[in-house]
Design a protein around this nucleic acid. Structure first.
Lengths: 359, 359
DNA sequence: TTGTACGCGTTATCAC
DNA sequence: GTGATAACGCGTACAA
């Protein structure tokens, strides 16, 4: 491997095949000092045209690539930001990451990605690791941290931005979607269609803050329409994963005589739709279904799913921009909350015919 | 901001609120040298119990977190690996990333993620950036690099693993799925069901190597069954995105009198299914459909999609293990190719009734 | 057992 | 214009 193994033991003038070229190597080759090399490569004006050219040529020939590690040590900035998520495979998060990455890259930042798998201990662990690596800021799109580890978080002396997890104070900032408004939109849509018995299908995959907020939206929509709420319409199916719970929801639904269901998220809605297909319940004729999230998949299923659009890409972009603003110590940063949008597709319609309870 | 602004101009004994604690700070506080601190914190045995305890206590009190940057500079290893993908939002890639991340994390490595958006220049750019950051290895699940930039790649003197892009020689290694075998499985399944006119729906989102291989599997399956191939059955729908092209495929299919379609990937298949639903073509009664990839979504649509399972998680895990092996300079690394599996679901059945061309 | 000195690869501040 | 030299934060031979 070594080019010069004979002098290996001297640990001098020695280059292994895998050791990157350094400015010292270039200096030796070009017959100048390493500081001259540094200047030549960084376009320092007070340097002779000749040596500049020479150094640059030698550097290119030797395939020199500067070490960001060394630069970071000096500048005390890594130009990298850490992102923690529950899991990358979550289609909801993927698009958020994309937004973060876009803005980060345009600003010259790289992205450290790590997952916590919804395990609180792992999550705080991951954050510590990111801090060791001296990322300039951390963006968290994970569920536990905010609520469980505020004390630990306050020890981390770098900007932290939480996504979809509003928290006030302590220098923690966040960007989130307005769940209440979104849910209200969804339920209002069903009410406008003429539905009067609308079920709310809860999901348990995410912490209750979501469910609570969306439930609140459900309540407000009823209030506005002066529609009474029946607690029996609030469903909490058991099962492994959102889709499975969505499937299970159909049995529960049959007993409620509801003709419309607002599901806590798209995956739950899709599970419910699948159960409908298998048991011959027609969507939307027999049952109207609304989801929440607007995953890509919502447009792929048949019938396509009416749902609440979360600006996920923008969520990520905004979070990263907020982190950048904090790094530049701009004016006071204010938490952002973004509005949702109703996407009417094919899974909702006016009620007609018999209820599924008697179908 | 500064704790001690009065001495700011001296640039000595000065700690800003955002400067992380260093071992020197601890040393000063504990009345020892920084090397003693280093030893105490790293569990060096030859150090007095008393000072060890003291240093550790002070370190904890000051909230010391070692700088990986400085450690890396010394060890010349960053314990991080870089991963480049076309886009994070691709559900196919997401699961691969998950596999990589799992193995990486268990081995104490962090993951740098960057995207190339299928833009060759951006891709080589991204790789250079990763190399500057001195990642220990690079894993590429992107399409262009291997074919277009072999010369540039050979300059990067760290282990590189390609996913789903077999390339021989030059120290480049790869792990890939056996597309030919997978496609063969898919088409054989349709033939076994009794189909004799099977369409192959191409997709253009990915480089031709995939299409070629899957086409080859299609050919082999026909050969084995002594079934003649009709070139008119090879469809290349135009459109923006796999799903859209899948939809467009239906018009083309109607002219072929085919009763079965093997789609190049799941998204194309799902587009086709959607078009079928909209135009009243029954799946699988009128048309059997097989996809390729086994995305999560394949199980969510109705009817669920018969497809070829790619071990995506394992693909990522294997790639990362291969990178680790190369880092440890184990015995010669051999490229891996993994087998696919047929997942029979609801979108395929024996042909019956009229063809969709006359429906 | 602990302190001193040096190196890791860069940048920056001095001199000359 | 260029060469020493220090510094960034940490680890570690060597000396004491």
């Amino acid at each position: 491997m070594a080019v010069d193994t004979a002098y290996d033991f001297l640990n001098v003038n020695f280059r292994s095949e895998f050791m990157p070229v350094t400015i010292k190597d270039i200096a030796k080759e070009a017959g100048v000092t390493h500081s001259t090399v540094s200047r030549a490569l960084n376009g320092n004006p007070r340097i002779s045209e000749a040596t500049a050219k020479l150094v640059q040529r030698v550097a290119a020939e030797m395939g020199y690539v500067p070490s960001a590690v060394a630069q970071n040590l000096h500048s005390r900035r890594t130009k990298s930001i850490g992102m923690v998520l529950t899991t990358i495979a979550d289609p909801f998060l993927a698009r958020i990451v994309e937004g973060v990455e876009q803005v980060a890259r345009d600003a010259g930042y790289s992205l450290f990605l790590s997952t916590s798998y919804n395990h609180p201990d792992k999550e705080i662990n991951v954050i510590e690791t990111l801090y060791r690596r001296r990322v300039d800021a951390i963006i968290i799109a994970s569920m536990w941290v905010g609520s469980t580890y505020r004390a630990e978080l306050s020890r981390i002396k770098i900007p932290i931005v939480l996504i979809n997890h509003l928290l006030e104070g302590d220098g923690l900032h966040s960007v989130a979607v307005d769940d209440v408004q979104g849910a209200r939109l969804a339920v209002k849509h069903l009410i406008d269609l003429g539905h009067r018995r609308i079920s709310f299908v809860k999901s348990l995959d995410r912490p209750s803050i979501y469910v609570e907020n969306r439930m609140e939206g459900y309540r407000l929509a009823h209030l506005e329409a002066a529609l009474p709420m029946d607690p029996r319409l609030i469903l909490t199916p058991e099962g492994d994963g959102d889709v499975e719970r969505g499937k299970r929801a159909l049995e529960l639904l049959r007993e409620t005589k509801a003709r419309a269901a607002f599901c806590c998220n798209d995956l739950t809605a899709i599970g419910l739709m699948k159960a409908c297909h298998e048991l011959g319940v027609r969507v939307p004729t027999d049952l109207s279904i609304v989801g929440f999230d607007d995953l890509e998949i919502a447009d792929y299923v048949s019938p396509s799913l009416t749902t609440i659009h979360q600006p996920r890409l923008e969520l990520g972009q905004t979070a990263m921009r907020m982190a950048l603003a904090m790094l530049e110590e701009k004016a006071a940063i204010t938490d952002q909350t973004m509005r949702c949008q109703l996407k009417v597709r094919q899974s909702t319609a006016a009620p007609g015919g018999d209820s599924i309870g008697h179908g």
